[in-house]
């Protein structure tokens, strides 16, 4: 008994290696990636410039408003200062002369600046 080839014969023997395609030449990948990175950096620094200008815009908007806000704040401080002066007058009225002299003594000898009332006894939270 002897084995015989299948009907129609054997399939051809694969003698050649079947390697996948290697793609482009290396130098082309180099330039493609360099190009993509270059564009990325270009856009990034455009964005940096834009952020700087946006910050500048925001800062100048604030500079234009600042005197207005300071003026409003100053008026409130002045209100409390005048009110404090008035309160001191009221307190003085009912004092003996001895106490009054003590009360009128200057606390600070440095006259170069005005001491404004800084603290207030807190009112109920609902009114703040």
């Amino acid at each position: 008994m002897q084995d015989l080839p299948p009907i129609g014969g054997y399939e051809p023997v694969q003698w050649k290696r079947n390697l996948p395609s290697r793609g482009f030449r290396p130098v082309i990948y180099f330039w493609l990636i360099s190009g993509a990175m270059g564009y990325g950096f270009y856009r990034f620094y455009q964005g940096v410039d834009e952020q700087r200008e946006l910050t500048r815009e925001k800062q100048w908007a604030r500079f234009f408003l600042q005197p207005l806000l300071i003026a409003e704040e100053d008026r409130n401080t002045a209100r409390r200062y005048f009110s404090e002066l008035k309160r001191q007058e009221l307190v003085k009225e009912s004092m003996s002369d001895e106490m009054k002299a003590k009360f009128e003594e200057e606390i600070y000898h440095d006259k170069s600046k005005l001491r404004l009332p800084r603290y207030t006894a807190g009112g109920p939270a609902s009114e703040h």
Partner: peptide, 29 residues
């Protein structure tokens, strides 16, 4: 803000100059 700045620049500068010259100038300005 930019329109306030455009119209009120002289007043703003005047106010801040006053504050600068009067050491805070809360009452003076």
């Amino acid at each position: 803000s930019y329109f306030i700045g455009a119209r009120c620049r002289p007043y703003n500068d005047d106010f801040l100059k006053c504050k600068d010259e009067n050491n805070g100038g809360t009452i003076e300005c």
